[in-house]
Each structure stands twice: as C-alpha cells, then as structure tokens.
Design a protein around this nucleic acid. Structure first.
Lengths: 341, 341
DNA sequence: CTGAAAGCGCTTACAG
DNA sequence: CTGAAAGCGCTTACAG
C-alpha cells in the first residue's frame, strides 16, 4: 500500500550502501560483489522497486523503446486494419519484449510528419515501418529518415531498396512463382492475375514477376485480358473479378496478390455460379486467419510472420547500435487448401 | 543535417529569451506574450525541436503514455490473437493519440507480475486490460491493482464488477437476448447454445442469460442436450458442434458465444451434410472480419469497437486524473447476414 | 569493490 | 510577462 514511490536512494538506505551501488547492482555491473548484489536485489524485489525509466532514459539517452508505425490507406473505418499486419504485430511485440524493449504503436496517415516526431522527442530509439500506401509517395520520406540518421527498418523489400535503408521482406518473386507453379501443376493453364502491377505497389509487382516467370517455364505468356487491378480490400477483389468475367475470356484459375482480394474473387465467382475449385482454382497470398475459415478454405502463400518479427526487431536493434545491416529476403511457403483443387 | 540534438536552451538562445520561457511557450502557458510565443514556436519548428519526453516526464511525473495489456490463453502460436481484440487495438490507439497519449502494448501471460511493472517503472500512467483467460484466476490480481492505486480499466463487465474497479463492456445480456430473439423470430424453436457457461467466462455467462431470457419469453426452456462447452478458437466450435450432433437431438438453430466458435460450428454442420441456414440457422457474436467473408456470411452480434476504444481511454484518463469513474455497458447491435436465413 | 559528484533536459514555484 | 534556481531519479566517469 506504499503510496510514496521508492527511489534508488531508499533502497540504498535499506541495504546500507550508497545509491550508485544500488544502480550498479540492478544493472548487473560486474563491479559489485556477489553478496551485495543479492542483498540489494532482494530488498528491491521485496519493496517492488523498479528503476524509473524516464530518469534512466534521460541519463543514458536511450529509451529502450521501439516505435511501430502502421501506414494505412486512408479509410473511413479506423478499425479496418490489414489482417496481415495485425499478425505481424503479435510477432514484433514478442520479439521486442524478449530483447528488453517496449513497443510503442501508432497509426499514421500518409501525410503526417512522423519522420521527425519519434526520434526527436526521444520516445523511441528506432522505428519499424509497416505498410506504405503508395510507395512512390513514400520513398522520399524514407530517404529523409535515412539522411537524418534515424534508425529504422522497413517491412517489404522494394526494388532498389539499398537506397532506402534496411528492409526486411518476403521473397515475393518466389512467392508469386510458387503460387502460379502450383496452379500449373494442377493442370490449370489459363490463370487470371488479380493485383495492381505498378511502381506504387512494388511488392505486388514482384509477385507478378514470379507469376510471369512460372508461366514462361510452361511456355505461356501474359494475357492482358486475364489481368485486373486490385489493391487492398475484399471489395477490390470483387471488382477485379467482375471485370475479368465481363470480358468473356475463358480462365480456369486465379492468382490474387492478397488473401482479401482472393476472398472477394471467390465470392464473385460463386455468385456467378462458378464452382471453386472445380471450375476455377484460386490461390491467394498472406495466409490471414480468414483464409483457413472460408468455404472453400483458401490455398495461399504464407509469409513467415514469426521470423519476420524477429528479423525486424534484430535488424533495428543492430542499426540502433550503429551497425550496418543488410536487407534480407524471407522465404514464403505454399499452404495448400481446397480452393486450388 | 544536425547530428546534435537541440535542447530548449538552444531554442532560447536563438529566440533571445530564457530557457523557461521556451518551455512555457511550448506548453501554451498563458503567461507568455503572444508575440514571444509565436516567435519561439516558429524557431522550434524550423529546427525540428521537440521536447524531450523523458526529461519532461521525469520532472512532471507523468509519462503521457498508456499501456495496453493483452492477456491470452496460452497458445503455441504467438501470432494467434483473438481478432476481436485486434479490432479494439486500432480503436484504442486512435483514441489515445487523439488525447495526446502514446500507447505501449504488451502481451502478457496469465502468471506474470504485470500488476506491478508498468506503474512502478513509470512507463505508463495507467493500464487498459484486454482479455483475461480464466476470470476466477484473474480477479485477485485486479483487486491487488486496485489496492495499489494503479489506474486501470478493464474491458468486459463481470458480475460484481464494482469490486474490481472501472470496467467497460458490451451489454452481453442484451446481446445474447437479441441473438436468440432473432432466431425465434425466424421461426426457429430448437436453438443450440455453444459456449462455456461458467464463472471463468463471465461474459459468456451473460450471453447465456440473455439467451435464456429470450427463450423464456416464448415459453421455451433450456435443454441441456442442446448445450455444449466452447471457449475460444474455431476448433472449439467444431468440437462443441460435433458433441451436439452426436447426441442425435433435433435442432434448427445455433447461437454461438463468439464468431470463431460459430464458424467452427458452420464448418462441422456443412461437413455433416447440413445446410446453413436452410437446415440450421447460425448466429455468432463479435463481428470479426471473417464473419462477413465466410459462406454463408455470418449473422452476428456486433460489439461497438469504436465507442469501446474511446470509452476505455476516457475512463482511464479520468481515473489517472483522480476521478471516480462508473463502469459502463455499451449496447450491441445485431448484424443480419445469410447464416440466419 | 564502493562512494561523492556531476549532469541528462526539462518544469515550476518564487521573485521581480 | 520573464528569469534565476532547484530538483525530478537516475548513470557514469573519477577517485580511492
């Protein structure tokens, strides 16, 4: 029921040592005798004493806190967050906690001046960036962060990423390749591609490159009539699927650049009276929770969320420590469910 | 490319005033002339100066940070987070940001001594608690937090919540009532109930109470053969549904205490050759993203995530400010989709 | 191995 | 309306 918070001076008094000795003992300094250290730790524990993080941070100039910034396409519904990023959150949080760091989270709109706020106010030692709306608008801000010497890591590996600092991302080319090869192995030959292939969406572009490469291996080319733009939500998938259906071209499979888009496509196909997978096989990307729960369950390319969280946090801590950190590609994994036959 | 971080002394020098005046100007103190304030703000902005949060917090003893603690049933997969809580996260983050507070997030296991850590280390001014595994084990910890005078708010309103401090929760009795009434209005009379009705799950218990009340209004009673235990994940829903099917009792509807459980039930029903909603109508609870994306889309009781986030943050800030805050029930809303016919 | 001293960058009485 | 001074609770050279 202690109303007064104890300080290291109080603990020092109780232990019969000086305050600096308490500080050293708590931080595990080698220059405190084992016996003294144990006594101090016991007393601290008994009185629920914990170092004041602000005093400590002020003195050391390190906050032991990482900031996780989500960027979202602006939507009306604040609560609509890309489910894939949400999965990453759990993984990142644990990775940070395991390494003794707190995690501050924030949702940012594209236009805010986030590039300054976290670092300048010392709330966080570094920044993890997730999602970026349109990459072409985003890139200049990354360059500024880099110029400012703010430690950050980016999720998703755009082409030319060397110029934008350290990035960790899935091997999207490989992922796209695996998805389309799987459909080809199942005997499908006319594979529609749903997703935005543009500089604004470098990750989707990479998935498309993998898709095209897999087709080429079977001497198949890209047919513009089998492609439709889609960027993020389920509705985008519906719109894209309807566009292709309206063209009257034949197709027996769909590769969508995200699960949300794939789910939209499946719903549109089913409403049009087509059976999935009998008439049209569908493969998505991400392996969000809804993928396994749909009817039929969705075959998809899973990103390795667990490894991603750890890799992001470790890369960021290394950068904070002043090390050079190479960008890194993480392998993806095909998860076969019923939607692909 | 300023490598040296500026302090309020630097800004003071540049503005030709004393350092305290800079501090006052930045905090909008009334005792700084309008002209001086504008000049100081301009200079601060120009030099990207931001107040050092640690120095400020050390001095004021306020961190302007809230901690969001998730409690999860222990699972192997760290990334499996209840999708409903994830939706709350977005809402809480924005509510905190709107009120000038950062949000620290952390996943806790049931047994950690979280009740001390955040407050004692001054990292956060208060705590928002989400999820609690088994409530009977959890309640004593809440009592301890309360005794320690740590400001906190709890999501979910257990019976007797007055004793555990401030809680904000959905009106689960009303929600359960609305769900079952809806099924009754659609002409269903034999309604299975999937969910754990026990002291460990007070929210599910409340949903059951609403369910029972709705039945009673139609002169229907509870049939134990139509009830089965289920706690959280989709697989729990499958197991519960199979249990009821195996009993060979007739039923034409299912009310599940969560969407995840409802989705598991639907899958099991469909695998057993039953049609949803023709043979069995299904209603869930939460309105997670997967609910709308399934086949058929799930009728469910939506919790008001937006209001919940705001209410939690405001209640917590009021408690931090030393005010008494009443616990509060939020209304739920039935979202009718295809699964209920 | 331990202690006395300085200082991290603010905010806020206090005095004018 | 503004400034000089004290102090929040630590950590870390420095000296012994």
């Amino acid at each position: 029921m202690a109303k007064e918070r104890l300080t290291s001076f109080d603990i020092a008094y109780l232990a019969g040592v000086s305050q600096p000795t308490v500080s050293r003992a708590l931080r595990g300094s080698a220059s405190v005798s084992e016996q003294t250290r144990k006594r101090i730790l016991a007393i601290a524990k008994q009185h629920n004493y914990t170092v004041d993080r602000h005093a400590s941070s002020l003195r050391t100039q390190r906050s032991n806190t990482l900031a996780l910034l989500f960027f979202e396409d602006p939507t009306d519904d604040d609560t609509m967050i890309n489910p894939f990023f949400l999965a990453m959150l759990g993984s990142i949080t644990r990775a940070a906690a395991d390494r003794g760091h707190d995690l501050l989270i924030s949702f940012q709109s594209q236009d805010s001046d986030w590039h300054a706020a976290y670092r300048d106010s010392r709330r966080a030692d570094g920044i993890i960036l997730l999602g970026y709306g349109d990459y072409t608008e985003y890139a200049p801000k990354l360059a500024r962060l880099e110029a400012q010497d703010t430690p950050f890591v980016l999720w998703g590996l755009p082409p030319g990423h060397e110029a934008v600092g350290t990035a960790i991302g899935s091997d999207n080319v490989q992922g796209g390749h695996v998805a389309t090869r799987h459909l080809l192995e199942r005997g499908r030959r006319r594979i529609a591609f749903l997703g935005s292939v543009s500089a604004g969406c470098p990750e989707f572009q990479a998935r498309f490159d993998g898709h095209a490469a897999a087709l080429a291996e079977h001497d198949l080319g890209i047919e513009p009539a089998l492609m439709a733009d889609a960027r993020s939500i389920e509705e985008d998938g519906r719109v894209a699927m309807r566009a292709i259906l309206s063209r009257g071209v034949a197709f027996d499979a769909v590769f969508a650049v995200s699960d949300l888009i794939a789910l939209g496509a499946i719903h549109t196909l089913q409403e049009a009276g087509l059976r999935v997978p009998e008439d049209v096989a569908v493969v998505g990307f991400d392996d969000i929770p809804s993928a396994a729960l749909g009817s039929p369950p969705l075959t998809t390319v899973a990103q390795d969320v667990r490894t991603a969280g750890t890799a992001l946090v470790e890369a960021l801590l290394a950068r904070i420590a002043g090390q050079k950190v190479e960008s890194r590609l993480l392998p993806t994994r095909l998860v076969v469910r019923k939607s692909s036959g």
